[in-house]
């Protein structure tokens, strides 16, 4: 047997195994199919083999690394880790259809509520990513993802002048609420979408719904609707308890606990303070050396600089007096 597959994905918080929808889909599918993947939960996309998360490092040379959830699932399926083995052809077709429904109707609203809605973005999403992504990327990446996601919404809706606002929110949420209701009707009282064992469709639904269920957002219209659909809420909690028991025990409070599975060097305390202090110290010593040895002289500069401003200031005062 070849070396185990390595999966890189966003680390978890709020009682979720990962904060990112795509990562959740892949993690859930790997669990459902029983694939022995070695999971690296990281917060720096640049450390993954493809530069984005999630990412699966495969052992075959010509495949390389994969990052789209659908490609990863197809690859796992080829390795005989197939959660859809028992599905009939018609159920396979239904899977494809409902995944499209999620991508067309629910995903835009999910992106909007996490990355575009200004209150949610500033209070929750940007805060979490800025606190968890290592310095100095934490200043760069959240804003970049925000811009990318807004662009994506604009292109998908075909309106280049689209501005986040009430009208857009209303349209997106209308579609999303309808989608959740349809999913709830399709699920009915079943344990999973196709009977008693989970399939890839369950992984997709879980990936899209569980962030809404667990992340506490100040502007939570989507969450309210999801909470009112009892069977869907129950379904997501069930998957969390059954397949991710270690995550469920974590406190679901706002302050994110330090994750033991993430790489060690990210957890050093006061890391950023130390970095800033050392940069300041280096700058100070270089400047001091330059002044002491006479490379930079500050003797003449004050005379010229002081004469100028004094002159204009006195003029300004005169003008005011008049």
């Amino acid at each position: 047997m070849a070396a185990p597959l390595e999966l890189y994905c966003w680390k978890g918080a709020w009682g979720l195994p990962s904060v990112d929808t795509d990562s959740l889909i892949v993690l859930a599918y790997a669990k459902f199919a029983g694939a022995p993947v070695k999971v690296h939960k990281i917060t720096n996309p640049w450390r993954s083999p493809t530069g984005v998360l999630p990412s699966l490092k495969t052992t075959e040379k010509n495949t390389g690394s994969l990052s789209k959830p659908s490609n990863i699932i197809i690859h796992l399926r080829k390795q005989k880790y197939n959660a859809d083995y028992d599905l009939s052809a018609k159920e396979g077709a239904d899977t494809l259809a409902f995944v499209s429904l999620l991508e067309e109707k629910l995903l835009p609203a999910l992106i909007y509520t996490l990355w575009v809605d200004s209150k949610n973005y500033v209070d929750v999403t940007r805060r979490w990513y800025a606190e968890n992504i290592p310095f100095p990327l934490n200043f760069l990446l959240p804003n970049r993802i925000h811009t990318q996601q807004l662009d994506r919404l604009r292109l998908v809706r075909g309106d280049p002048t689209l501005e986040p606002g009430e009208q857009l929110e209303k349209e997106l949420y209308y579609d999303a609420l309808e989608c959740m209701t349809l999913l709830s009707q399709r699920l009915g009282s079943q344990k999973f979408f196709f009977g008693d064992s989970p399939s890839s469709l369950d992984a997709y639904v879980f990936g899209h719904l569980s962030p809404l269920l667990k992340i506490k957002l100040p502007n939570g219209k989507l969450q309210q609707h999801l909470n009112s659909l009892d069977n869907l809420r129950q379904y997501c909690s069930n998957i969390l308890v059954l397949y991710f028991p270690s995550e469920d025990r974590e406190p679901t409070s706002h302050n994110v606990s330090v994750h033991s599975e993430s790489s060690d060097f990210d957890n050093e305390p006061h890391k950023r303070r130390n970095q800033i202090l050392s940069v300041l110290f280096a700058l100070g010593s270089m400047l001091g050396y330059a002044i002491l040895t006479g490379i930079v002289s500050i003797q003449r500069v004050p005379q010229a600089a002081i004469a100028g401003p004094q002159h204009t200031e006195s003029r300004g005062e005169e003008d005011e007096d008049e």
């Binding site: 239904d94 429904l101 991508e103 349809l182 009707q185």
Partner: peptide
């Protein structure tokens, strides 16, 4: 109806 909407999105 849920299946119909899903196939339309497909």
């Amino acid at each position: 109806r849920a299946e119909m909407k899903a196939y339309m999105e497909l």
